[in-house]
């Protein structure tokens, strides 16, 4: 399938093309957000209920049954759960998104990159709402907001880059290989249990700590905890990752690069096989 014909059409100026793509992302994201909560009485509260339930179970099991010795464990846990939920939800929702919109791709020619962008954007919106809820919870548990919380902004940008990259990889592969859905199901569980979401990384063997510290999720979760709990000297000792951040940040951007490449490579055939 290396041979390929060409389609020549005069495009508008770059700014116009960009505006066109942004309009598509925005209309897709808005309708997706609307559809997600259409017909359900509690609407957005469901998006809050899921991580809350996660949190409650992990709190009972690891905070009480195993008695994890972590100061401010509820805050520690809520940060991990909210960030992990964003990754897991974004990838699970984006994974089938191109196949779901296959019918539209067969009817109108438009840039298919807008589809995963819109789905991750609407998940990011849910994530931000969850962050507000988590912020209220953290405040209520006696941690006062501080200047270092502003450091969360670049951290979340890095995290979105990573989430988008992984989402693009899986959504592009899923069109041709439906196995990608099964792979992500397993992988998301592995990630949950290896990323120090509900236990401190220091209980892992040294070599394992070094390996998981490469993960952008682990780095973002640990750094977010450090920024939020930074004022507490007991908490500061375990939260921040000692390694240089170059590697996880590089991996986050590499994931995005790979995702964009895969999408570019696969997208010409999306209308035929999605």
């Amino acid at each position: 399938m290396s041979r390929s014909g060409t389609y020549v059409v005069r495009r508008g100026p770059l700014a116009e093309q960009l505006a066109y793509r942004l309009r598509i992302v925005s209309v897709f994201a808005r309708t997706e957000f609307k559809l997600k909560y259409a017909g359900s009485a509690l609407g957005y509260l469901w998006s809050l209920a899921k991580p809350s339930l996660y949190f409650a179970i992990l709190w009972i099991v690891f905070g009480h049954l195993f008695r994890t010795n972590v100061p401010h464990f509820p805050v520690y846990l809520v940060v991990g759960v909210v960030l992990y939920t964003f990754l897991a939800d974004a990838v699970s929702l984006t994974l089938p998104s191109i196949v779901v919109r296959g019918a539209v791709l067969r009817r109108i020619a438009f840039p298919s990159l807008t589809i995963p962008l819109a789905t991750t954007a609407s998940t990011a919106l849910t994530f931000l709402l969850n962050c507000i809820a988590a912020g209220i919870f953290i405040g209520a548990s006696g941690i006062a907001p501080r200047g270092s919380w502003l450091m969360l902004v670049p951290l979340f940008v890095e995290f979105y880059v990573f989430v988008l990259g992984i989402s693009l990889i899986f959504s592009s592969l899923y069109v041709r290989f439906r196995d990608a859905g099964q792979v992500w199901e397993v992988l998301s569980t592995v990630i949950l249990y290896t990323s120090g979401i509900m236990y401190p990384l220091r209980i892992l063997p040294d070599w394992a700590q070094k390996v998981v510290a490469l993960s952008p999720l682990v780095q973002v979760v640990q750094d977010a905890r450090a920024h939020i709990l930074g004022g507490d000297p007991r908490a500061a000792s375990y939260t921040a990752i000692a390694e240089p951040h170059v590697f996880p940040i590089l991996i986050a951007f590499a994931a995005l690069g790979l995702g964009l490449m895969l999408h570019r490579h696969e997208s010409p055939r999306f209308p035929e096989i999605a």
Partner: peptide
């Protein structure tokens, strides 16, 4: 669909001048 830019041709060239409006596969999409 090849004229509309939905399917990429395996060989050959499609040249379009001006804005296209497609009405293809009714109701689908």
């Amino acid at each position: 669909k090849v004229m509309a830019g939905i399917y990429r041709p395996d060989a050959g060239t499609v040249r379009v001048n001006g804005v296209l409006s497609p009405f293809i596969e009714l109701g689908v999409g």
